[in-house]
Amino acid sequence: MTEVTMTVNGKLMRGEVEGRTLLVSFLRDQLGLTGTHVGCDTSQCGACVVHVDGKAVKSCTMLALEADGAEVATIEGQADADGSLNVIQQAFQDHHGLQCGFCTPGMVMSAAALLKENPKPTEDEIRHYLEGNICRCTGYHNIVKAILAASGQEAAAIAAE
């Protein structure tokens, strides 16, 4: 067991982990941050996406020890302290960008990373950026629409109902 320390959603967190403990297990099992999900074991689905030092990372693919000393952001830290949703979360709700909600935390975190890199992505850029995020419920239509809307682009004009 080795001690790890990381800042998660702005709070300093400490824990003991085995060498093989994945970051996602540390977040879910030790810190109780169950908003980050596990949808696969081959690093393909993106349900587990969090930000590590500002970059989108699949937390099922990173060891907890590798995040020692890092700044980690998860879905639990995205809304404002008063509970109001951030722009991306709000756009997902407004445009019905989620159904069962299982892929949603990863989608929101990936979208945040995309918009940081590319504040006004095209439809195509969004679809390609989401290559590593699988959603089985929505057929992606409303997810893409929500991200366009979150980027301040007129989603309705681009996406037919």
């Binding site: 169950t34 908003g35 069962c100």
Partner: peptide, 20 residues
Amino acid sequence: KRREDLRFLTGSGRYTDDIN
């Protein structure tokens, strides 16, 4: 707007694997 979205969008859904 869907009321269930609030919990899913903030990571506070309660799926079976979240139950310990």
